[in-house]
């Protein structure tokens, strides 16, 4: 009798463990195709601890940035980490390149409508390499060339999808003339489509 009870208890324990640890297998669906439908651009003020969208558009020239917001047509109900869904997400067209232009004379070498992407850097976060083995580690700001952005967003979209994607580009060169500046961001896709956004006018202060 004791043996039977032991066997029965073992089966109950096994079933319970299975119910706690096993995930429902995914049923295979067609990949969910989404599209980048629009972009907006805002002036960023980074003079404090963290960057915020400027309300006054009067910003220290050394603390200026542009916030790019990319909108997708993904349905609200499937937002989040890809692993939470059985769907495979895929953009109908990937970003090929992102370019930033000045709509005013930036300096003597960069007149109106020049590309000045090289003066901006994409703000990312990563761990301090020296502390890679430390359990208390947290991410710090890192600054990547704009040419890396298309690859980063491609990698990110493999694991995470959102209706609204916000990324920041910070300026690391001050213009010669501080007044009335505007910038334009062009996002070129592989199929030839271009999405453009223009920032509000910004007045720089030293």
């Amino acid at each position: 009798m004791k043996k039977i009870i032991n066997i029965f208890a073992g089966i109950v324990f096994f079933v319970l463990m299975q119910s706690f640890t096993c995930e429902e297998p995914c049923q295979i669906h067609e990949p969910m195709i989404y599209k980048y439908i629009a972009i907006t651009t805002d002036n960023l003020d980074n003079n404090k601890e963290y960057q915020i969208v400027s309300e006054t558009n009067i910003i220290y020239s050394k603390a200026y940035g542009i916030r790019l917001t990319l909108y997708t047509d993904i349905h609200d109900s499937v937002l989040g980490y890809k692993k939470d869904y059985c769907y495979d997400f895929s953009a109908d067209d990937s970003i090929r390149v992102i370019k930033i232009f000045t709509l005013n004379d930036f300096d003597s070498e960069h007149p109106k409508d020049s590309e000045i992407s090289e003066f901006f850097r994409f703000l990312d976060y990563s761990e301090v390499p020296e502390f890679a083995s430390n359990v208390n580690r947290r991410s710090v700001r890192t600054y990547l060339p704009i040419k890396d952005y298309s690859e980063i967003i491609k990698q990110e979209s493999k694991t995470f999808i959102r209706k609204k994607i916000e990324d920041d580009f910070l300026l690391f060169k001050s213009p010669q003339n501080l007044q009335n500046h505007q910038f334009r961001i062009d996002i070129e896709f592989y199929k030839g489509r271009i999405l453009s956004g223009t920032t509000p006018i910004v007045n720089f202060i030293e």
Binding site: N46, N47, F172
Partner: peptide, 14 residues
């Protein structure tokens, strides 16, 4: 051991 991230005031520099 310690590490500090230092963000400059009025600047993008860290």
């Amino acid at each position: 051991e310690a590490a500090y991230e230092l963000k400059a005031k009025n600047s993008n520099q860290t």
